[in-house]
Design a protein around this nucleic acid. Structure first.
Lengths: 292, 292
DNA sequence: CATGATGTCTGACTTAAGTCAGATAAATCG
DNA sequence: CGATTTATCTGACTTAAGTCAGACATCATG
């Protein structure tokens, strides 16, 4: 009944190859070779360090240098030595460069917008794209500390609360749970980690400290499109490392066995030991501890 | 809460671009430029006519000619004049060419297999890929007559029956419905149309004739991943055209208002008029007619 | 059968992309 | 400090890809 998975994969490949090709040729419409356009877009997207851009685009250093020179000759880019390390260089867009960059943005936005607008279920299409992108880019997911009040963190936390509200039969009210103060999840007391993939937040975890050697792990969440890729485990390893760096030697956490069964399994598999209840929150019924 | 759709689209773009790039470079590992590899693969995938390959790959005639010559020099391809039109040429793989082609197949199968095997929900990933591929390739979906007993038709009909079984509360048994004989859905009595996208069947419709000027439309089905793209309408237009070509002037069909509400909407919108019951099948409760 | 259209081929180009071997300057480390 | 490593730059290449004009044979049509 179901068709050969590899045939389906191939069809997908062909479809996106020609889409990517179409986008590339629309980029060529601006009269600049693709290589140069890619560098310009990388800079516009916030990559500054020349070496970083090279790694991101996979370019040879000679080629990179020439492309940059061409963009400088066009007056779109300015380069300068890196403030802290004069071997390196950083690139920035000039006003003309920013204008040109936004033309490229307009081109790809128009493509994206047209495709999404013409689809009967844009949200389903986007969800499918997220899933595919996470599967393809799983080893390009990076973990980093972030401000728990920043945009990426707020997105994760919002999705986390929404999911809890769905999973708990009686709903979920942040106010009822002891919502950790943001300051307790920032250095030097604690930390907040966000997993990012190409600018999109895919997961988070918070470490709520009190200045002492004990801290609590809170708000572990992974985006539905990225589940099963081992991201929760990476986040937990990351938060343990952050705790060690802060001089913390004991971690605790709480969870709910019925609403979040996969979480309890993860903690047990990662070597956490169950302990008696240590708070009076209404939601959790399972409590864990781990010594570092 | 939900992130900028365009940012999500871009992330998808970047992920597949680098995946496509990785596949391309793995193809380069066989010591042949990509262009030549693409031509070899096109021939291996059943494209024979040189002009057709050129259109499929979007190549200039000069370039195409040179690439073919290179493959001939390698002993992988043999070309010959087209039997019916000596201006055209057809290309075929030699034994060595077939061996080389299957090496390429192995490479891309391995990539696809590794990705699917490493994913926690391969079926969900494939479904997402199907959805994206259909959305991207909507104007590359082609309609064509097919044998209702062939592989593509059987796949569609199997999915169709399975879906009916899910939608009808009491299930669905093909034997209870008047399953049209395959011969009635083949020329000269009738027709069977299949919508294909890059080798994958995405929808079908049957025209069951009896040798007279009246015929019945049966088995209209569209793959879930391709719904909303106007494919059902195209199939209905195609079946009407096929009917006209067979000298048929009146079409009838039956459907079920509760289990298949979108079908009834489609027929009404396409100008069909409701008529009294004309058979005693247990499943349908709505009957339509249309004069051509 | 003459005419124009079609499909392929050839040769002469251009451009983009990428490679490689140094040169240079700054940072790092013992 | 001197030796080594790192990051970028330059010049001299190669290769792939694509363009263009014209040649040639064949087909379709009046």
């Amino acid at each position: 009944m179901s068709l050969d998975p590899v045939a389906r994969f191939r069809r997908f490949s062909r479809a996106v190859t020609s889409e990517v090709g179409a986008l590339d040729s629309s980029f060529l419409g601006r009269g600049r070779p693709l290589g140069a356009a890619r560098v310009l877009n990388a800079i516009g997207n916030g990559h500054e360090d020349v070496g970083e851009i090279r790694a991101y685009l996979g370019l040879d250093s000679g080629l990179m240098s020439r492309l940059l020179r061409g963009l400088e000759a066009e007056g779109l880019v300015r380069t300068a030595p890196h403030p802290g390390d004069a071997r390196r260089r950083v690139a920035a867009l000039t006003d003309a460069g920013r204008a040109e960059f936004s033309e490229y943005e307009t081109l790809s936005d128009a493509r994206a917008g047209a495709l999404l607008a013409s689809h009967p279920r844009p949200e389903a299409l986007l969800a499918a794209m997220d899933l595919v992108a996470s599967a393809l880019g799983r080893d390009r997911i990076t973990l980093g500390q972030a401000d728990p009040r920043g945009a990426a963190a707020r997105h994760c936390l919002g999705a986390y609360y929404a999911e809890l509200a769905r999973r708990f039969e009686q709903g979920f009210d942040v106010a009822l749970s002891r919502d950790p103060e943001a300051a307790d999840m920032c250095p030097p007391r604690g930390a907040f980690l966000v997993a990012m993939s190409d600018g999109l937040p895919l997961g988070c975890v918070g470490l709520k400290g009190n200045g002492g050697t004990q801290a609590e792990v809170k708000r572990l969440w992974v985006a539905p499109s990225a589940r099963g890729l081992g991201l929760a485990r990476r986040l937990m390893e990351g938060v343990e490392e952050a705790a060690r760096a802060l001089g913390i030697d004991t971690l605790r956490l709480d969870t709910n066995s019925a609403a979040l069964p996969e979480a309890a399994r993860l903690y047990r598999a990662a070597g956490w030991t169950e302990i008696p209840r240590f708070n009076d929150d209404p939601y959790p019924d399972l409590f864990f501890e781990r010594r570092l």
